[in-house]
């Protein structure tokens, strides 16, 4: 009787796998996007609508002074007391007081959850990145309808 000399263990041919993976790596390296670019969407704060057509929703104006100070002013809100509607935030360590800014937004939103519109009025010398930072913080705190006002 002929004894079986065949090897029972077999080897997978790995060369096609390597070819396939190499092609995948080349394609993905060529099409890779290393910088993830997105967009922050805002509206013009001063639009073509008439005063009568604009719904009377609560609005928070954020004015950025040339020195980097922030001034918050909530308008058209029935729930926020008049003495709390205006807040002035001085600079902290030569930077805008972002922590105070976020604290105040949270407080405003607790008093009036309908506050979802934020309008930004930058100064002429305000840096673009500071405006984007401000928009990002407004969005993070629930003010999703943003507008920017021309000078």
């Amino acid at each position: 009787m002929k004894s079986s000399k065949k090897h029972l263990d077999f080897e997978i041919n790995l060369i096609p796998c390597i070819d396939l993976l190499s092609v995948c790596i080349c394609f993905l390296l060529l099409t890779a996007v290393w910088l993830n670019v997105g967009s922050l969407n805002v509206k013009q704060a001063v639009g073509g609508q008439t005063q009568e057509d604009t719904p009377k929703n609560p609005v928070m104006w954020v004015r950025m002074s040339p020195q980097g100070e922030l001034e918050l002013d909530v308008q058209q809100s029935q729930l926020i007391p008049a003495n709390l509607r205006k807040v002035h935030l001085a600079k902290v360590n030569s930077l805008p007081d972002w922590s105070g800014f976020e604290r105040n937004i949270v407080a405003f939103r607790q008093l009036d959850p309908g506050l979802k519109t934020g309008l930004i009025q930058p100064a002429a010398v305000t840096a673009y990145e500071d405006i984007i930072d401000l928009m990002d913080k407004l969005k993070a705190n629930g003010l999703t309808d943003l507008g920017v006002s021309p000078l």
Partner: peptide
Amino acid sequence: KYEELNKIILAMNQSGYSDIHFAVV
């Protein structure tokens, strides 16, 4: 500076572009 951006925003306002998308990383 915003004064440079302001020129664009005003031009957009005049030509009927009400939505601004700021490109960010």
